[in-house]
Amino acid sequence: MSNTQASNGAHARIYVVVFVALLALTIVTVSLSYLHLSVFPSVLLALIVASIKGYLVSNYFMHLISERRLIYAILVLTGIFFLSLIFLPLSHFHDRVG
């Protein structure tokens, strides 16, 4: 437990900033949906906003930003299989005969 009170205080401030940013982004994504854009831009924008929020949660609340290489390695591996699970079946559905 090498953390001092002061650095914990600094962490707490970062968490509050992240919290406010998440609330703001929630408002952004809901407002965007009221624009009723066509499918492609609305999906793209929604995914970008969600990814930023996901980035904030995983990097700060789950403190991935200062995590060990071992954890990164596991997550990269999972990410590759996640993408193959999403895109390989999809490409099969778009490349069908009969």
Binding site: L88, S91, H92, D95, R96, V97, G98
Partner: peptide, 8 residues
């Protein structure tokens, strides 16, 4: 056998 295209 499920009718897969040549690319995939």
């Amino acid at each position: 056998l499920t009718g897969m295209g040549t690319v995939i």
